[in-house]
């Protein structure tokens, strides 16, 4: 058996793959598109540092206060969305992939605050599907036990629920250019194929 040299030139590279291979389904009345990869970091303030964290949120998101059902959006250079994910925990979803998501989140909050915040990279844990179109409610009413209608879930609202046994985060995004509603459905990466099937087995993607 040949003895390898640990100092030999590295010629192995890793290729990233998206959970659903950048899936797209477009039918009359709705589209279902896998959202491009983006960095996601969970943030949770250490005990005793909640007020400091809340102030940081207020400053970053223009007076917003952490809420259990409301997501906040930051535009510009540090474009991202902050959405509640659990008790005293939020997900910071950047608009793009960043090389070191936790470092980027730390930079956003500032060193002083960040050292008292638990941060965990969640970028690879989720598949995000954007469900858009005038008939999205026909899809959601078949799979989603919570009320996603506009009065109950206006733009920017988020909730955690179960869709066909799969834990799901739902985020109501701004309407598309045609005024049609848009939702992000975030589910676990490993069951992304099953999740996709659940959605596409519903109208208008499947015959009523």
């Amino acid at each position: 058996m040949a003895s390898p040299s640990p100092k030999q030139k590295l010629n192995f590279t890793l290729t990233a793959s998206s959970p659903l291979g950048r899936h797209r389904t477009i039918v009359d009345g709705a589209s279902l598109i896998e959202v491009s990869p983006r960095s996601v970091v969970s943030v949770s303030p250490f005990n005793g540092h909640e007020a400091e964290f809340n102030t940081a949120i207020d400053n970053l998101f223009d007076g917003a206060y952490p809420s259990a059902t409301k997501a906040f959006e930051l535009t510009g250079e540090n474009a991202c969305i902050l959405l509640p994910s659990s008790y005293s925990q939020w997900f910071l979803c950047f608009d793009d992939e960043v090389p070191d998501p936790v470092a980027a989140a730390s930079d956003l909050f500032g060193k002083k605050t960040s050292k008292h915040v638990a941060m965990t990279d969640q970028s690879d844990a989720w598949v995000i599907l954007a469900l858009t179109g005038p008939l999205v409610y026909r899809t959601l009413e078949r799979i989603c036990p919570i009320d996603c209608s506009s009065p109950a879930m206006p733009i920017g609202t988020t909730a955690r629920t179960i869709i066909e046994h799969l834990g799901t985060i739902i985020l109501r995004r701004p309407n598309d250019d045609n005024g049609n509603p848009c939702f992000w459905l975030m589910a676990a990466r490993s069951s992304a194929a099953s999740f996709l099937h659940v959605v596409t087995a519903s109208p208008p993607f499947t015959l009523q």
Partner: peptide, 29 residues
């Protein structure tokens, strides 16, 4: 207690590399 939990089961792909040559294999990567 100051404890913060989150599952990262989905976040990471994890592989066992087992056997007398496991270190040598890893050293190539």
């Amino acid at each position: 207690l100051d404890v913060h939990l989150i599952s990262v089961t989905e976040q990471y792909a994890q592989f066992a590399i087992a056997g007398p040559n496991s270190r040598r294999l890893l050293e190539k990567l």
